[in-house]
Nucleic acid binder design. Structure first.
Lengths: 209, 209, 209, 209
DNA sequence: TATGAATGAGTCTTCATTCAT
DNA sequence: CATGAATGAAGACTCATTCAT
């Protein structure tokens, strides 16, 4: 039911917890990207966070907690950046185009981090993994909302029952740029990729269709 | 230059090496899928292979070798199954449709294994990873060949310079089904996914376009 | 240039490092003498040191480090004992006699340890071995100094160019007592050995000669 | 009582045993010198011997047996070379001089092998080690014999009770050249060393004394 | 709160030895 | 006699986690 997993901490002050966990996340993201989750030691995380191993364990209960924090933070950043890029002026179709452009740009800029989630989140305990996946759905909800708005204001011509599917498709297109960047970039710039995929998508959802 | 990495073995008989390595692969694939590469121990691999830890190390030099064997075998199986499903009767367009259907089906049936490659191959030594990636290109070459044949026989209407890109796109569509199966399957059957993606692809490469 | 090899430690407190390494050395010397370096396990060293295997590795990086610590400590003890036994009263000849007596006595008392160096130091990494050998030269320098003092004060009658050689010879006589104790002790007491070898040496360096 | 340790073999033919063991010794000596006993594997010994690991174990019972064979062979060679160099013409003093020269030369030529015995023989089982040490006494007996002959023919002037000691001393001088070659060779050639040590020795045993 | 020394279960890998062929 | 595949005990070393200060 909860959106976020609660990680117990030995420290009381919530401000401090937040601050320290931000340090942990910042340090861990870099390490996980460079070396992978398993090859990164808790000592390294503590050192890169700027405090001792003992302090690290004041704010988390296990190494896996760090992975969860990292995954969650990355999702939050993707979602945050995406939301802040979307102005809700104009009709939904316009917003959708803007959202797509922003989404692809964010995925491009954060591709290391997004990749990290896909490669390492399997190491999370089953229950925790569910939290992370749910977080991803939050993002796809943004697109669902826009699509529904478009149905309402008449700027987007698809059936309600295809909304979820279409949102999924959009997510996939973003991830595709992350996963196969090495292949795709040989042929497309991000700009071209955005143009092309947007065009294809719009073809499917244009009112005239 | 070489397509395959040569893994030294202390055992001389090539037939036996092949047989034992097949045992190793079979055992390791299951374990890696279930527990991940890092959480699987060499002892578990040995036991599941049906022999002792000492014997395991007669056929490999390191745990990473097992990962390589596994990745290589999976790619080989994908490629093998795909090739055997393609009859070279009819024009290239017809073959392409068949190939797409087969490819998606193979990816669906082997999704655990394909996922395994994407989640664990990063643990391979840099040099070895290159072998694995090269292997993947082999598969995309199958589609390149078909596309070129289609240009030659006039059944496919794209420019030669887009061949590589189009083959890449096809690969991505297959992987997408693997990576986001949990999301996609809520909306599509494999059959529907195949129909839809094929239709979209063909739209881009139809002669009339 | 450096006289001692610096062995990195995960522990920060230098006092503690020193204390623990002394424990390690004390434990390891006995084990190495009794079982040899190769037949002694790191677990045994840890246990005999009074802590866990994990703690052992907080203070060393490899088993070879223990061997180095041991060799270095033995040399230090030989040199220390020798230096503290030499009073610098009287002429160099008198000092030399005293030094010889002390040296042979120290070698006798520490013969197990000295033997240990000769039998096991070959297992050190090349670079580390050089540190150990250099340490031995420190000891022979003590005799060089005395000899040079003797040349200066006229109590010892050898040419400067023979000083190094003579110091080497003295070292050999000490080691001889260690290596062939089992044979020599059948015929000589340490006292007799000292007398005899001293007499022979003095014959070669007496002023009158 | 026995001079040589009997090593059981699964093979019957004594000629073949001898031949194979010679192969083993030749291979093992080089390996032990280069890598030390512990770091040499039985597989390496077998390969360098020219046969399989299985065959190796047809002719020995354990790796330590190889070490024994090697030590014994080296002693045998030292003794053999020494004996063959000594002509029993002339008085004992003359023979002694010749023997000393030969002994030092042999020790010089075989210094790697002699060093091997001193560094590795401690790895032999206690009982076996005794065989090896006894073998060394054989060599010192050569010098005892010469000295006794010299007492008898009047060419050497020492007391019978010092014979053993003197022979020991000679052994030590030879070993010294082996152990401290790196130091001694900076000052002496083998020739000079031989001259000097012979002179010192003769001074002690000259008839006139 | 922060520290960092201590812990020890767990990991990969080696290698002497055996034995069926 | 020769071979070499199979064995598994043993070893060096790592690292997540704890807890006294």
């Amino acid at each position: 039911m909860e959106k976020r997993k609660n990680i117990p901490s030995l420290v009381k002050d919530p401000k401090l917890i937040e601050k320290r966990r931000e340090q942990i996340i910042e340090a861990a993201v870099d390490l996980f990207i460079k070396k992978g989750f398993h090859k990164t030691t808790t000592r390294e995380i503590a050192r890169a966070s700027g405090f001792s191993i003992g302090t690290l364990y004041e704010y988390i209960e296990s190494k896996e907690d760090v992975l969860y924090l990292v995954c969650d933070a990355i999702h939050a950043e993707v979602e945050g950046r995406l939301r802040e890029a979307i102005t809700f002026n104009g009709n939904a179709l316009k917003i959708l185009k803007l959202a797509l452009r922003s989404f692809f740009r964010v995925m491009d800029q954060m591709s290391d981090r997004v990749l990290l989630i896909y490669q390492e989140s399997k190491s999370l305990p089953k229950e925790t993994l569910r939290y992370v996946l749910r977080r991803e759905e939050e993002i796809s909800l943004i697109f669902e909302d826009i699509l529904r708005k478009g149905i309402a204001d008449g700027s987007i011509g698809i059936d309600e029952k295809h909304v979820k599917l279409m949102a999924d498709n959009i997510m996939v297109l973003g991830e595709m740029w992350v996963f196969r960047r090495w292949a795709l970039q040989r042929h497309y710039t991000l700009e071209e990729y955005t143009e092309k995929q947007t065009a294809l998508l719009l073809r499917e959802i244009s009112v005239s269709e």
